[in-house]
């Protein structure tokens, strides 16, 4: 897999999420801090944190399906975010792990960090519905 094979949702452009790099087949997403992402003073808004986690989960299952059984229509059913430490005024990174990828549902665990991956700022469980692509 490589970066050109997946497309981030349009909203990624609005807040500035982009693909930073690939860890084997898993995309690592990044988001630079800006005043437009601020919640409590000096920190990312919890909603921006949630958005980056959700996009990391979606990009990860998208990349996995494209490399395997083929692209599908992906719709997150729910996301549960745990906030562990504030995400401060520096770049944030997020990646996700597929816990299970079934035929109609994938369960992913996403992690967002700044300094180092073993000090997560937030994690999320994201459940994604998988459906065939509609005929173009």
């Amino acid at each position: 897999m490589s970066a050109q094979d997946i497309t981030l949702p349009a909203y990624a452009g609005t807040i500035g999420v982009r693909i930073d790099s690939w860890d084997a087949a898993r995309p690592i997403l990044t988001l630079d801090y800006s005043g437009e992402l601020c919640g409590n003073p000096g920190m990312f808004h919890g909603g921006a944190v949630a958005a980056l986690l959700e996009m990391a989960a979606l990009a990860t299952i998208d990349a996995d399906l494209r490399a395997g059984r083929g692209p599908a229509k992906l719709s997150p059913v729910n996301a549960t975010v745990e906030y562990m430490r504030p995400a401060l005024e520096r770049p944030a990174y997020a990646s996700a792990r597929i816990v299970r990828a079934g035929r109609r549902l994938a369960n992913l665990e996403a992690t967002l960090w700044q300094e180092s991956e073993d000090k997560p700022c937030a994690t999320a469980i994201v459940n994604v519905a998988i459906a065939p692509l509609e005929a173009a």
């Binding site: 349009a10 909203y11 609005t14 807040i15 808004h45 919890g46 909603g47 921006a48 949630a50 958005a51």
Partner: peptide, 21 residues
């Protein structure tokens, strides 16, 4: 600017989660 998929016009879940929070 809040849309996830320009074809459907549905709002992005990231924007929605900010509203929910």
């Amino acid at each position: 600017r809040l849309v996830d998929d320009p074809d459907t016009g549905a709002m992005a879940r990231g924007a929605i989660m900010t509203l929910l929070d």
